[in-house]
């Protein structure tokens, strides 16, 4: 299978602890891969290796088939690997489109000399992105502070896809959301999938995983203990991998 991004034999140690031990996995175009595991199983370390936060001790990363070096989050971003952390990294005091353009604001020349923010442009562009998403935001001039959890998630996701994410890593996107909003976010994941974005989803919620994932990777004590096609497995089987019953 042609992976958009693939990691091979990744090892990451912290002192004496092997957080990620010889793990290989990949995500294809328009595919959702869920990474499951108990707390401390090594899933977030693996994700941080892919998003450039940690450098692995061993192993290779292939992007569109070619080996790449991801030494910093900026490297990951320039490849089109966007990560949405649980805290979403939004500036609550700014409005929706300002957050989508944060750090990459569009300016125009006022009176031909002074660079000023082009609010109209940013508003228009942000509207284009958000229009394609399931979750509706009443006004793009609303402050993040006044948005619901699901709407915030949508803003964070819009930011990623506006800047041409090819791979989207989502860390517990439905945690801390109400039931209705959870399903909206999952629908959002399906929308992105349809656009050909490869998604790595970290979740604790079996329901979410079985609703959107194509493949499921289970990690336990730093190792990959199972990789299953969603249609060929059951939640019970996955749980037994997570707790280690079937691996013995």
């Amino acid at each position: 299978m042609d992976y958009l991004i693939e990691v091979r034999n990744i090892v990451k140690r912290f002192g004496g602890l092997v957080a990620v031990n010889d793990v290989s996995m990949g995500v294809g175009r328009g595919e959702v891969v869920a990474v499951l595991g108990d707390n401390g199983a090594g899933k977030s370390t693996l994700i941080k290796v892919i998003s450039g936060v940690y450098a692995p001790e061993e192993g290779t990363i292939l992007f569109e088939g070619k080996p790449v070096r991801i030494a910093s989050p900026m490297d990951a971003l320039s490849l089109g690997i966007e990560t949405i952390y649980q805290d979403l990294a939004l500036a609550e005091n700014l409005n929706v489109y300002s957050n989508i353009f944060l750090g990459r604001e569009k300016t125009r020349k006022a009176a031909g000399i002074f660079p000023v923010l082009d609010h109209e442009y940013m508003h228009r562009e942000a509207a284009k992105v958000l229009d394609g998403l399931v979750i509706k935001i009443p006004s793009l001039r609303s402050k993040i502070k006044s948005l619901s959890g699901g709407q915030r998630q949508a803003v964070a996701i819009s930011r990623s896809i506006y800047w041409n994410a090819k791979i989207l890593i989502m860390d517990e996107p439905t945690a801390a959301l109400g039931v209705a909003q959870q399903s909206q976010v999952l629908e959002l994941v399906n929308t992105l999938k349809a656009r050909g974005i490869g998604i790595i989803l970290i979740s604790h919620t079996m329901f979410d995983v079985f609703k959107v994932a194509d493949r499921i990777v289970v990690m336990r004590r730093g190792r990959k203990v199972a990789e299953k096609i969603r249609t060929e497995t059951t939640p019970d089987e996955i749980v037994s991998y997570i707790v280690g019953a079937e691996a013995v």
Partner: peptide, 20 residues
């Protein structure tokens, strides 16, 4: 009006988000 001003707000709102 400027990017500079906008970033000042962003840093005050969420320094982590600004860095990222």
């Amino acid at each position: 009006m400027t990017k500079f001003g906008h970033h000042t707000y962003a840093i005050g709102g969420n320094p982590d988000a600004a860095v990222r």
